[in-house]
C-alpha cells in the first residue's frame, strides 16, 4: 500500500528487485527470439495473475491476502521471466485498481515476483523428473509459491515495524500468524484451481507445454491418455 513502508525500505527492496528484473528481461528476450508464439501465453498468464490477485481479502497487516497465481507462470517460464510479468502486473494493479503502490512496488515484486516463484520453481524442479503425478507437482508448486510470497511479505512488514519487545522476530511471528488464517486455505485453493487450469491446457493445447519442455513428453502423453 502506497506510503506504508518508510522510504529507506522502499529503496532497499527496489535494489533487490532490479537485478532480478534485468536478468528476467534478458531471459524474456531469449525466449521470445526462440519462440515468438510464447508472447500470447505470457500475456494471458499475466492477465490471469492480475485477475487472481485482485481478489483481495483484508488482513490486519498493512497488506492483504489474495491469491497470487504466479505458480503457473513460474512452472512454464521459470522464476525470472515471472518476475518481469509480475512487475508489469503490479504496476497495472496500482494504476487500474489503486491496489499496491508505486513506492512499494519494489517490495511487492520481491515477495510476489521473485521469492514466491523461486520457491515454487524449486518444488517443480525437484518433482519434475520423479514419478510424482504431474498435476500434484503443479498444485504443490503453486501453493508453495503463494505461501512463500506471504512469508516474504511478513518479513518485509516485520523489518519495517519491529516490535519493541522481541524486535523483528516477534513482529515477524505476529504478522505470519495473522496472515496464516487467510493465506493457508487460499494457497490450497489456488493450488487446486491452477492445477485444474494446467489440466485444461494439457488436454486442449499441449503443444506449447511440449515446446517449452515443461514436463517430459511421456508424462504429458500419459496424462492425455495417448501412451
Amino acid at each position: 500500500m502506497e506510503g506504508y513502508l518508510p522510504w529507506q525500505w522502499c529503496v532497499v527492496w527496489w535494489f533487490i528487485a532490479l537485478p532480478c528484473l534485468v536478468f528476467g528481461i534478458y531471459r524474456l528476450k531469449k525466449v521470445l527470439e526462440m519462440d515468438h508464439e510464447a508472447l500470447p501465453l505470457l500475456g494471458v498468464t499475466g492477465g490471469f495473475i492480475f485477475i487472481l490477485s485482485s481478489l483481495k481479502l483484508p488482513s490486519i497487516t498493512g497488506s492483504c491476502s489474495h491469491p497470487t497465481g504466479t505458480g503457473l507462470s513460474a512452472v512454464c517460464f521459470g522464476p525470472w521471466i515471472t518476475s518481469v510479468v509480475c512487475a508489469i502486473v503490479l504496476l497495472f494493479q496500482s494504476l487500474f485498481l489503486a491496489h499496491g503502490g508505486l513506492s512499494v512496488l519494489g517490495a511487492n515484486v520481491v515477495s510476489m515476483g521473485i521469492i514466491g516463484p523461486i520457491a515454487g520453481y524449486i518444488v517443480y524442479r525437484a518433482l519434475r523428473d520423479t514419478r510424482v503425478n504431474m498435476y500434484l507437482t503443479v498444485f504443490l508448486a503453486c501453493a508453495i509459491a503463494d505461501l512463500f510470497t506471504y512469508i516474504t511479505t511478513s518479513l518485509e512488514l516485520a523489518l519495517a515495524t519491529p516490535a519493541e519487545v522481541g524486535g523483528i522476530t516477534s513482529s515477524f511471528v505476529l504478522f505470519m500468524g495473522i496472515f496464516a488464517f487467510t493465506q493457508v486455505p487460499l494457497a490450497i485453493v489456488e493450488g487446486i484451481v491452477l492445477a485444474l487450469v494446467f489440466k485444461y491446457i494439457v488436454q486442449l493445447k499441449p503443444d506449447i507445454i511440449l515446446r517449452l519442455k515443461v514436463f517430459p513428453e511421456e508424462k504429458i502423453r500419459a496424462a492425455r491418455g495417448e501412451a
Binding site: 528481461i25 524474456l28 528476450k29 521470445l32 508472447l39 500470447p40 505470457l42 500475456g43 494471458v44 499475466g46 492477465g47 490471469f48 492480475f50 485477475i51 518481469v84 510479468v85 508489469i88 502486473v89 504496476l91 497495472f92 487500474f96
Partner: peptide, 19 residues
C-alpha cells in the same frame, strides 16, 4: 526495453479480454 513494453501491452489487452 521493447520486450517489456510488448509484454505490457499484451497483458493490458488480455486483461480486458479475460474480464
Amino acid at each position: 526495453p521493447e520486450v517489456v513494453l510488448d509484454l505490457a501491452m499484451m497483458i493490458y489487452r488480455s486483461i480486458f479480454m479475460i474480464m
